[in-house]
Design a protein around this nucleic acid. Sequence first.
DNA 1: ACATTAAGTGATT
DNA 2: AATCACTTAATGT
Length: 210
Amino acid sequence: MRVLLERHYGYLFEPELLDEIEATGKCKLIKQGERLLDIGQDITVMPLIFSGAIKILREDDDGDELLLYFIEKGDTCAMTFSCCLGNGKSEIRAIAESDTELLMIPIEKMDEWMVKYQSWREFILDSYHTRMSELLETIDTLAFMKMDERIMKYLKDRAMVTNDDIIYSTHQDVARDLHTSRVVVSRLLKNLEREGKIELSRNHIKVLAL
DNA sequence: ACATTAAGTGATT
DNA sequence: AATCACTTAATGT
């Protein structure tokens, strides 16, 4: 575990902080598809990600989902911070996109380290900032891009975070993430295939134009 | 062989 | 871009 810490965060944090992280954090392996945080759930820990990827979803009144963004190695969930300040409940749902190794840190430590370590302060502020940018990007995508462009971006993003040009999910799954209907997804995917950008098969989609 | 699930398509709004 | 209705294809039991 120390090795993992050094590799992913060693250049960021001073040795004393690494020691503390090692002492208080619990290492965890999350299997793909596992739900590690749901809406309304109390937040008690913050994650530090070593490998893999996690997708962050929002849900509407009818229970329909919408993908917000992915978090990857070196990231932490920015929602954790706002939840610490607010009511402590999660506003989002987090599901492992692939098998993920992460470290769980009790949220009390967040405050403590904020005053104690400048590197931690910078890390938190910086990830807050990048998260904010990502959110803006998804808003742009939602507001300005057409559905076919959104699908293409979605596929590329997923290929990126999983390091795999094959997306293992059904049209229905894609539709859920993008908050649209399966029929629309099937149609647009068919078009993208005709354009030579992807290759379709049952239960998976291969992205050609990376 | 039959049921179930995934994907493709025309027509309508 | 969403919905309906229906078809076809692949897969599980």
